[in-house]
Design a protein around this nucleic acid. Sequence first.
DNA 1: CATATGATTCCA
DNA 2: GGAATCATATGA
Length: 203
Amino acid sequence: MRERLPEDFYERDALTVARALVGTHLVHGDRVARIVETEAYRGPTDLACHARVGVTKRTRTLYGPPGRAYVFLIYGMYDCFNVVCFGEGKGHAVLVRAVEPVRGVAEGVRSDGPGRLTRALGITRAHDGEDLLGGGRIAIAPRASRPRIAVSARVGVAYAGAIAEAPWRFFDAASAHVSRPSPRSIGLGLKAKAPSESGARRR
DNA sequence: CATATGATTCCA
DNA sequence: GGAATCATATGA
C-alpha cells in the first residue's frame, strides 16, 4: 500500500492544510490523481463554509475528527470531495477542486472542477465519513516535490459577502488541469477591488 | 408542509 | 444566458 499522510498533517487550520495538499496524490482504489487545486473552508465563522449552520445531519462529518472525507451533493447532481481538518468540533475542511490524472483514469476524462474530479475518480456521497488514515478505499499520499503555488479568492461563494474575497484558494501555477485560468495573481500583491462591496456596506 | 437555493456543469 | 436536479435549511 502506498504511503499515507499522517494524522497530524490534518490537525491544522484548513488554510495550512489546503496549501499543503497541492501536489499530493489522491488515491481511490487503483485510480491515482495529483491534487492541483484546493480551497480552505474555516468553520462556523466562515460564512462560505457549511459549518455556518452548526452541527446538523449534513455537517456531522464536517464537525467530526480530522483526516476523514466530507462528501456532499451540490446542485442536485455533483459530489464534492473535502478533507476534514484542524480538530473535532472545529468544522474546518479543504475542498479539492481539481486533480490531474496519474493512473487508472480513462483518457479524455476531465478531472478539473470539484464535480468532475469525483466523477473521474468514482468518489460519491457513499464515501462521506470515510477515514483517510487507515486502510480505507481512499487515501492521500505525500507529494514528491513542492509545486509553485498560486493563490486566489474562492470560487462560487459570492453569497457569503466580504469573506468570499479572502485568498483561500490554492493551485499549482504550472498545472494545465486547474478548474479555471489563474484569476489575477493576487499573490503578487495586486488585489482586485470589488466596487459594490467597498464603500456601501458596513454591517 | 412549502419554498428557496447551492463550495457546478453543460448547453444554447 | 439559463437549465438541470435534489438534499438541506428555513419558515409557515
